[in-house]
Simulated scan of single mutants.
Amino acid sequence: MIPDTGSSDTWIISDGFKCLDPYDGRETSQEQCGFGPSFKGGFPDGKIDNQILNISYLSGDYLNGPMGLASITVANVTIPKQQLALVDVAAFDGDGVSSGILGLGLRGLTAAFTDNDSRNNTNNLINYSPLVETLGSSGVADPVFSFAMSRDENRSYIAFGGVPPVETGEYTTVPIQQGVTTGGKTDYFYYDIAIDSMTWNSSTVTQTATNLPNHIVDSGITINLFPQNVAEAINNAFSPPGQQEDSMLWSVPCDAIPPTLDIVIGGKVIRTHPSSMIMPETLAEGSDRCMSGIGAGRADSYILGGTFMQEIVAVFDVSDKKELKFAQRLD
């Protein structure tokens, strides 16, 4: 399962699910959805009547399935009677490995509905306790989790109730910002934080951006998604410069030299590791170009993703503090 701080619903693909083409809705082979092994069980702690998962993602993927309760064990911590979904209808472009999402977001983003046709009808929306909230309310552990991500899987950790066993520098702390729905509801939805500034340096240029919009810290997005002008300037600072491929993505030679990128959060600099600035796994056969780790986001949906989160420790405290902490790794 993919640990995703940008989503609050936990789900796993169910055995016998129906795979749909996300473009035309026609049923296709299960293999086309790109899931790992499907789950053959049910809800050990009971099915929840009249509640289903009915969710759409920015990518255009969407999912449906019944909801129920089950204990979830991850990182040697068992969260009892967690609400989750067994997806039986999916229009999804998976990675061929993962079988679902471990939703690590906040309550305001949960998406249980009373029927299959209500994805856009918030009158039928039911918010429920997501995994990180249940972690605390059950008394199993403090409602805190953290990532220490790295391209080296032997140096990558996720911890629940505390922080991973890695050496870090000093932490900076920043509050999670509340959001407001179109209907006027105020709640915590995303891990939305304020950014003081960004500075990028190359052998030929030094530039700083201030007065930036809030950014969402999202482990489910591989790259950073910045305002268009910032993304363009950073990609132009690669040596040689990046080439824009579409409205969101840039490519660079896989051996390009990236600029240094310093993001100031809570008054402290968090430097993006150079190895995060180029995505070598995107190299296509016969090409020498890779995806840049910096892309352009949409207004109100700017992202600090995997590019930012590698080689730092990111702590998500969803207790009454509602804050995030970041520190540079020293190990």
Score class of each variant (00 low, 15 high):
95 D>N: 11
86 L>P: 00
251 S>V: 10
77 V>Y: 15
230 V>G: 02
207 Q>E: 15
118 S>Q: 12
186 T>Y: 15
319 S>A: 08
12 I>M: 13
85 A>I: 10
275 S>A: 11
303 I>V: 15
95 D>A: 08
127 N>C: 13
48 I>G: 03
147 F>K: 00
279 M>L: 14
42 G>D: 14
273 H>V: 05
230 V>M: 09
227 P>E: 10
132 V>C: 08
27 E>C: 10
283 L>Q: 12
64 N>D: 10
309 M>P: 05
324 L>I: 02
55 I>T: 05
34 G>P: 05
193 I>V: 08
47 K>D: 11
152 D>H: 12
145 F>T: 01
278 I>N: 00
120 N>Q: 15
25 G>T: 10
91 A>K: 00
17 F>I: 04
328 Q>G: 07
171 Y>N: 01
52 I>T: 04
248 M>N: 07
90 A>L: 06
142 D>L: 12
260 T>H: 04
314 A>W: 00
137 S>C: 12
94 G>F: 14
277 M>N: 05
49 D>Y: 10
149 M>D: 02
206 T>P: 02
202 S>A: 14
151 R>N: 12
208 T>K: 13
132 V>E: 06
250 W>A: 06
209 A>D: 06
8 S>H: 06
331 D>S: 12
226 F>M: 07
130 P>G: 10
255 D>L: 11
309 M>Q: 11
260 T>S: 14
178 Q>V: 09
6 G>L: 04
117 D>F: 15
188 Y>L: 11
41 G>Y: 06
28 T>Q: 13
278 I>S: 01
266 G>D: 00
159 A>I: 05
331 D>P: 10
272 T>Y: 00
134 T>A: 07
116 N>Q: 15
148 A>K: 00
184 G>K: 07
12 I>H: 03
48 I>N: 02
120 N>W: 14
83 Q>K: 13
86 L>E: 01
169 G>S: 09
228 Q>W: 07
131 L>E: 02
122 T>S: 11
192 D>C: 10
41 G>A: 15
